[in-house]
């Protein structure tokens, strides 16, 4: 029982991390109808920027305190993400209004290649580490309930907490602020939004910036866990089933989907994996999402698809 709970909790926390990446997909899809394959590259790019700036800052400014260096690096990385968002809107998206979904998908794949190339060319292609002072050692909880207690990774716990906070903040931003309302209007109907005076171009910069910042947070958390390296870009592929499962247009869907996928992956790996040779994590999530799709083609929380002839 304790082992099962431990796996379950591990899965839930991994799921929170997936939903962080998935959030980036959902944000951009909601506001522009673009399925952003470059989200993984954004995560890598942001993490690289963060890791390298925190390394370079003490040399540039003479700041000794690692906390200040980290904060400075975070701000700088945020600025870089803003520049990326602005350039993408300016040079790419602006020219592709009203194109088909497949074309836009391809464009984001092109952007992904570009970002990976620039990121590694500029920031370097070794393995870097991000140290924001996350506690590494695991803790035991509920020792009086189970024999030996349950092992929880403190780092995962904090990461999950940050993810939850971020989701809360984003929900507030979408529901309560004027900008958030404008974003939802654009997502609903580009033309109608434009006709009531919402500047489409600025909205897109904002949404890519928000997605970039989410990528930065995801990059810091994943990066301090695994180290910043090229494989970070493939995290996006792990997060895709989450998006399918939760629905492309739903922020809560990304969270719930992430939790389901995280738990499903861990449980399947532990209880099913040994029978078929292990390593099934990667496709099991997709199969799970596929089965869900057969019953709900628009995902768990996606908007109902209505066909008109």
């Amino acid at each position: 029982m304790a082992f099962f709970l431990e796996t379950l909790i591990g899965g839930l926390m991994a799921g929170m991390l997936y939903s962080l990446v998935a959030l980036g997909f959902v944000l951009i899809y909601k506001a522009s109808g673009v399925f952003n394959f470059a989200q993984g590259a954004l995560v890598l790019f942001a993490a690289l920027a963060m890791a390298r700036f925190s390394e370079w800052l003490p040399g540039w400014t003479g700041i000794d305190s690692p906390i200040l260096a980290n904060i400075g690096a975070f701000v700088l990385a945020g600025l870089v993400m803003f520049a990326v968002a602005w350039i993408i809107e300016r040079l790419v998206l602006r020219h592709l209004v009203n194109q088909e979904g497949a074309t836009l998908l391809m464009v984001t794949l092109g952007i992904a290649y570009l970002l990976e190339g620039i990121g590694q060319g500029f920031f370097g292609n070794d393995i870097y580490k991000i140290d924001v002072g996350m506690p590494k050692e695991p803790v035991m909880v509920l020792e009086n309930m189970f024999e030996g207690g349950i092992l929880i990774n403190k780092e995962d716990f904090i990461a999950a907490l940050i993810a939850a906070l971020l989701v809360g903040a984003l929900t507030l931003f979408f529901q309560k602020t004027a900008t958030g309302r404008a974003l939802r209007a654009v997502a609903d109907d580009h033309q109608a939004a434009q006709s009531i005076g919402i500047p489409l171009n600025r909205i897109w910069v904002i949404i890519w910036l928000v997605a970039g910042l989410v990528a930065l947070v995801a990059g810091i958390i994943w990066g301090s866990k695994l180290g910043v390296q090229f494989s970070l870009a493939t995290v996006a592929l792990r997060a895709l089933p989450v998006v399918i499962l939760g629905g492309l247009t739903s922020v809560p869907g990304a969270i719930v989907g992430g939790l389901i996928i995280g738990v499903g992956e861990k449980l399947s790996e532990v209880y099913l994996g040994p029978y078929v040779g292990g390593g099934i994590e990667i496709w099991f999530a997709y199969m799970l999402a596929l089965v869900f799709l057969l019953f709900r083609p628009q995902g768990l929380f996606g908007e109902k698809i209505i066909d008109r002839v």
Partner: peptide
């Protein structure tokens, strides 16, 4: 190569 490949794809699609 990555960069130019990506840029060319984006350019082409536009």
């Amino acid at each position: 190569e990555f960069m130019i490949f990506g840029a060319l794809i984006v350019f082409f699609l536009i």
